[in-house]
Design a protein around this nucleic acid. Structure first.
Length: 290
DNA sequence: CACCACCCCTGGACGC
DNA sequence: TGCGTCCAGGGGTGGT
């Protein structure tokens, strides 16, 4: 569920908490959520992931280093230290990254897999009940970008219509399947794919290669407008998503189609239709989208 | 190569 | 109340 807007809002809430601070300690409560730094690019597959990560030391979790920057590409976040080392965090479906004040009494809650202590006594906690997410360790941001982010397409917030069009060219799968493919465009998930396609009046079933330049422009604008609005309202919270301060998002109240199958289309009044595209529940308006 | 079905995981909703 | 079943979905893997 955390897609680009949730991760970006999370990043914005963590920047003032983390930049310039340093980690004084890290506690790993569940080893298999952590991958690297010498493990294969992209991490282990599910079965192999159970293996104990090699090279896991307090240093590789950035302990002792000052935090210089928080990066985001698509749905992934990176904490970058002054000395260049980087930790990549992917929230998956249910992941949370939460900062807690020093005075709050801390008792580890369920599914909290990794806890950092900061030099001012506050804490940064990675929690992920479903464990679709993970934490990847790299010796440098360049290494992270080369080994983990190189397969990602342009970020959804900055992609141009020409770039999207080029990525769609020659592909005959449904347009929505292409939008969900992170190598085509990074950051779009099931919710914002449906919302953007509705706003752009394009059917999720359209063949990707059939999208015309003018339609790609409208679609890119729709994606970016919708995502920008969501970032501003703290992201969408359906179940698990909270920002760095533990606050819920409110953007879910603006959904036009997602989760509204059977309800009336706000534009034309027809009942919204639910279908499956690329193994994902998809909601669309047959009257408006084509 | 392109595409797709399947699987990982947990908790919440729902039916009986 | 309790138990079973289904569903949510990001993304890696392996099959077609």
């Amino acid at each position: 569920m955390p897609e680009l807007p949730e991760v970006e809002h999370l990043r914005l809430t963590l920047v003032p908490r983390l930049l310039g601070r340093s980690f004084s300690a890290a506690r790993v409560h569940r080893r298999d959520v952590i991958i690297g730094p010498q493990d294969p690019p992209g991490g282990f597959s599910r079965s192999r992931r159970r293996r104990r990560p090699r090279g896991l030391s307090p240093g590789s979790l950035l302990v002792g280093a000052t935090i210089r920057d928080l990066h985001r590409t698509g749905k992934q976040l990176a904490i970058v230290a002054e000395d260049g080392r980087a930790v990549c965090i992917h929230l998956g479906m249910s992941g949370q990254l939460r900062w807690r004040e020093s005075e709050s009494p801390y008792r580890r809650a369920e599914h909290e897999h990794l806890t950092w202590r900061l030099d001012d006594g506050s804490r940064l906690i990675f929690r992920d009940p479903r464990r679709f997410g993970g934490v990847w360790l790299f010796d440098s941001l360049a290494d992270l970008q080369a080994r983990r982010w190189s397969g990602l397409g342009p970020d959804a917030m900055t992609i141009t219509a020409d770039q999207l069009l080029a990525a769609l060219a020659g592909s005959h799968r449904p347009l929505k399947a292409a939008l969900l493919d992170q190598s085509v465009i990074a950051g779009v998930g099931n919710i914002y794919a449906d919302e953007a396609l509705f706003a752009a009046r394009l059917s999720p079933l359209r063949s990707a290669a059939d999208v015309r330049p003018a339609e790609a422009s409208v679609l890119v604008r729709a994606i970016q407008t919708i995502m920008q609005a969501s970032i501003a309202s703290g992201g969408s919270t359906l179940r698990d998503y909270v920002d760095g301060n533990g606050r819920l998002g409110t953007n879910q109240s603006r959904f036009a189609v997602y989760g509204r199958a059977g309800d009336r289309c706000f534009a034309c009044g027809r009942a919204l239709r639910a279908l499956q595209v690329a193994q994902r529940t998809t909601v669309m308006c047959s009257g408006c989208q084509d």
